[in-house]
Amino acid sequence: MKKPVIDASGVNLTFQTKDAPVHALKDVNLQIDKGDFVSFIGPSGCGKTTLLRCIAALETPTGGSLTVNGLSPDEARKARSYGYVFQAAGLYPWRTIEKNIKLPLEIMGYPKAEMDERVKRVLDLVDLSGFGKKFPWQLSGGMQQRASIARALAFDADILLMDEPFGALDEIVRDKLNEELLKLWDRTGKTICFVTHSIPEAVYLSTKIVVMSPRPGRITDVIESPLPRERPLEIRDTPEFIEIAHRVREGLREGHNA
């Protein structure tokens, strides 16, 4: 049996706040295999972002065990195991798109020639060739977010952690980026963890959907998607798609009433 890329068992996280401790994650058990596309879906406060941040070692669980590539999240981060895409593109306004993508490469000490070669490759990958010399404000929101994905792909992390990356974009741009993201996932074979609160987005993208609910943040359902890897946008009108979406919605409702 192959080892999971991300393995969480009994993960708990309690934030100490002034009034009362907040139970952000309760007994989270989850295995994510190499090449999975996993969506975390749930209402705000369900801990989906917190779980992603635990995997990225931006938060530390207060209980349970969590490994990434068989390492602790901290070690995995130092081993450059993942690229992280935030809700906002967060490009530096004083750097061109090219230089923004070079940021992690500079920090990680790549040689100059290799940096240029990598920038060119990832710009191609996110369909932004020719925009390298532009400053972020010269690009649309969707293009900025694509640049931020390119930035996360520039170094060879085999895990991509995405925290509602398309949450601030309009529906049409979002559809297009979803389609592109699937192609990119197919081409690169990366393991992707994707936080969202859109049911169609989760069902369309994922091989595995993790339904979560709040107070305390916990997993209520894990759905293995039977949809094929090849997914045109029209797949969203098929009965299989609608059935999965229905199950996700039921899971969310149950978690809400409990």
Binding site: R80, Y84, F86, W94, E106, I107
Partner: peptide, 26 residues
């Protein structure tokens, strides 16, 4: 968020200073 981004790269304090804090402060 910008500081978290630097943390995901395991950037040192000096790198965060030169590449993020100093340009932001201009």
């Amino acid at each position: 968020m910008q500081l978290d981004l630097m943390r995901t790269y395991s950037a040192s304090d000096a790198q965060t200073f030169w590449k993020l804090r100093l340009p932001s402060s201009m």
